[in-house]
Design a protein around this nucleic acid. Structure first.
Lengths: 195, 195
DNA sequence: AGCGTATATTTACACTGTAAATATTTTTTG
DNA sequence: CAAAAAATATTTACAGTGTAAATATACGCT
């Protein structure tokens, strides 16, 4: 059904998301418009409405795909039997590297303005992304208490840390002076672990 | 020179920034347009060009004012002789509360897409904001080493933490389940201090 | 007073997202 | 298999946006 000569595109939903990702890569967030995506997918500028409703719907789908890719990036380059510490290093490094290399997409993913915060697909993939960080933060000793929600607090702390560093880096706030050369592992060394 | 009957506005630069802040408060980031700011300030939609060049210039000025207010928010409600620990608590709490109460402005402030990252005023006020966080992080023991850049790394860690939590909160990523009720002080308890 | 400059307006234009009406294809149904 | 129904895409129209150019008005200075 991917015939090019048909009136119906056949796989327009996917093609539009892909077009959006390409535009983000090659041009930037400023050029990510509904019409530009449609043009790149070879359809009229009102065709996306059938699949995404409106601009925010398309943006949300692109952001959801972004979370999917971020999740993959956090898990690449790992031997199948990697330790949790190694997996955590990979996740943290991948998160920051993703933000650095995809600043437009990263900004879109965390822009409540442009996306629908209640989009089911977006929620799902963002949740899976967070789940990876939760997994690698298991056993982390953050505060020494054994309160029942200690694990949850460690997870939120871990995500906040990594995300904050990633966003400050990607948005250029840390590109001055000596801070420019700081890597995330310089700033966030190994944590203690529970025995 | 704030005469209303004059052809020249008299203080348009300030009026436009104020109009932008009002729009962000009362309507949201989606309605923050050049024309809307001009209308609210009572001038034609091309008047801002003389003072800010283009939309990005106006947005940068509004963002700069945002950093100014954020800095103030981090320092309010403090007795003149407050301890550094109290000042740090105030700064952290103020940062998060600011993001919660001004989500549109906060998103604008950290949006490289909409602002000019090299705007001198923006750089200055963002720097002053960061300086407050650096000040209250003084003496913080983050890693136990005494490497020469230990202080810098603690500062970057501290900003990343606070900013990450603030942005995840303001963007609704932490509004699910038990995380919803987490305050920043639950997640980031007191740090150790150097003797 | 007069001139240069700063500031503001008018007008025009290309681009954006959305809606309504229409056309085409696919799918369902009788 | 034919007809009806639904899904998908197009055309057209429109209000809104930022920007640029030409023009108008006020200010500041000598």
């Amino acid at each position: 059904m991917t015939d090019q000569s048909t009136y119906h595109h056949g796989n327009l939903k996917e093609a539009l998301v892909q077009a959006g990702l390409d535009i983000l890569n090659q041009q930037g967030l400023a050029d990510l418009t509904l019409r530009a995506c449609a043009l790149r997918a070879g359809v009229s500028h009102t065709a996306p409405k059938n699949h995404f409703g409106n601009l925010a719907g398309l943006m949300s789908a692109i952001a959801a795909r972004g979370y999917q890719r971020l999740t993959e990036t956090m898990q690449t380059g790992l031997p199948p039997d990697a330790s949790r510490a190694d997996r955590r290093q990979a996740a943290m490094g991948g998160y920051v590297e993703f933000a650095r290399q995809n600043p437009g997409l990263f900004e879109l993913m965390f822009s409540p303005q442009r996306t629908n915060g209640d989009d089911p697909d977006l929620l799902h993939h963002a949740g899976r992304c967070f789940a990876v960080l939760c997994d690698v933060s298991e056993g982390l000793i953050w505060d020494k208490s054994d309160a029942p929600d200690a694990a949850l607090r460690a997870q939120v702390m871990h995500w906040s840390m990594v995300h904050g560093f990633a966003q400050l880096t990607a948005s250029g706030k840390l590109n001055k002076g000596e801070m420019k050369h700081l890597q995330i592992f310089d700033v966030f060394p190994q944590f203690d672990y529970k025995s």
